[in-house]
């Protein structure tokens, strides 16, 4: 499998009068071509900041404190803005969280889809319209949507419009941030299926960030679990769900409600504050298996079985 995106030791911090919020504190992973890569974790663990960092959309008071994001051999964090603009959308698309607010309220849908096309490729207005129409069709929206304004569409439709915009130029990588949050379950299913189709029918690579483990289970090929600004486990979805290694992952999976199970077990305690991450392994205050070494030394990421990595002292020298 060829590697499409390599994120190395990415750090995204936020300035404040009390110090720096270290939302993303050294994240490293790799995404391969034509796969759906999920990033899971609780709210507040830094997932959205991670996306901002990868796409270089971090706005003050946030800033990128270090790391590399290598996409097709180019470090997205270091290239000049003009080059970045050219890569954006044509090769690297973004589906933000909350489609409701991501559309310009005073411009028709048609124009909003076309402006991205025209600003990147030279083509006649007619061709761009056709392109926009086919994109809308592939997400299952009718032609009438073109002439509407955002406020006339429902939440699910808006989400689909955004996805249509994202795929119009057939990018290689699509990053979707919480694509199903704030939508009802029926619509969620549609969106998830759509994302899956992006990989299967269009050969795209999708990074999906979500706190919904069930969504990952349905759609992702590989999954990374994020906690307290760092990745604690990466592996194929089947492996991670069947045999979760990190105590946190175990907690997340047992917290998924399912029809068969009677009890849903949560994870005790509250997520720590990005101002002051715990020392050593960041999960140790909530971990039932915590030992002395966990409290003082940060565990490195180790490959426990083929393709299955974890950062936990439980799997120390044994591997």
């Amino acid at each position: 499998m060829k590697s499409l995106l390599q994120v190395k030791d990415l750090k995204v911090y936020y300035k404040s009068i009390w110090g720096d919020f270290k939302s993303v504190d050294g994240v490293t992973f790799e995404v391969y071509e034509n796969e759906v890569f999920g990033i899971a974790g609780e709210s507040g663990c830094g997932k959205s900041s991670l996306v901002d960092g990868i796409l270089r959309l971090v706005a003050p008071p946030g800033y990128i404190a270090g790391g590399e994001v290598i996409f097709e051999g180019v470090d997205l964090l270091k290239i000049p803005e003009k080059e970045l603009r050219r890569i954006r959308w044509t090769k690297l698309a973004y589906i933000p969280q909350g489609a409701m607010n991501s559309l310009n309220p005073v411009i028709r849908i048609e124009e909003q889809i076309i402006d991205a096309i025209l600003d990147h490729k030279q083509m006649s207005k007619r061709k761009s319209r056709q392109l926009a129409l086919s994109a809308l069709k592939s997400v299952g929206l009718p032609v009438e949507v073109m002439q509407m304004y955002p406020h006339e569409l429902s939440g699910g439709m808006k989400q689909r419009v955004i996805i249509a915009m994202a795929i119009a130029l057939k990018p290689r990588l699509v990053v979707a941030d919480e694509p199903t949050t704030a939508l009802d379950v029926v619509i969620q299913r549609g969106i998830l299926q759509l994302l899956r189709r992006l990989k299967e029918d269009y050969g795209m690579t999708v990074i999906m960030v979500s706190h919904d483990m069930a969504a990952h289970a349905q759609v992702a090929d590989r999954i990374a679990i994020m906690y307290a600004g760092k990745i604690v486990e990466i592996g194929f979805v089947y492996d991670v769900f069947e045999d979760p290694l990190h105590p946190y992952t175990k907690g997340l999976i047992s917290a998924i409600p399912s029809i068969g199970r009677k009890y849903v077990k949560g994870i005790p305690g509250l997520p720590p504050s990005p101002l002051n991450w715990p020392a050593g392994c960041r999960f140790h205050p909530r971990c039932t298996y915590a030992t002395d070494v966990c409290r003082s030394v940060e565990p490195p990421m180790r490959e426990v079985s083929p393709g299955h990595f974890v950062s936990c002292h439980l799997y120390g020298e044994k591997a």
């Binding site: 796409l55 603009r85 954006r88 044509t90 933000p96 607010n101 991501s102 310009n104 402006d115 955004i162």
Partner: peptide
């Protein structure tokens, strides 16, 4: 400029002038 749709417009890689005219100014 702090609104979501502005962020999205940047992510779309739109030309700066277009962002200014159609997204910021119009609103």
């Amino acid at each position: 400029v702090g609104e979501d749709y502005l962020r999205f417009a940047t992510a779309k890689g739109l030309k700066k002038r277009r962002i200014h005219n159609r997204y910021v100014f119009r609103n």
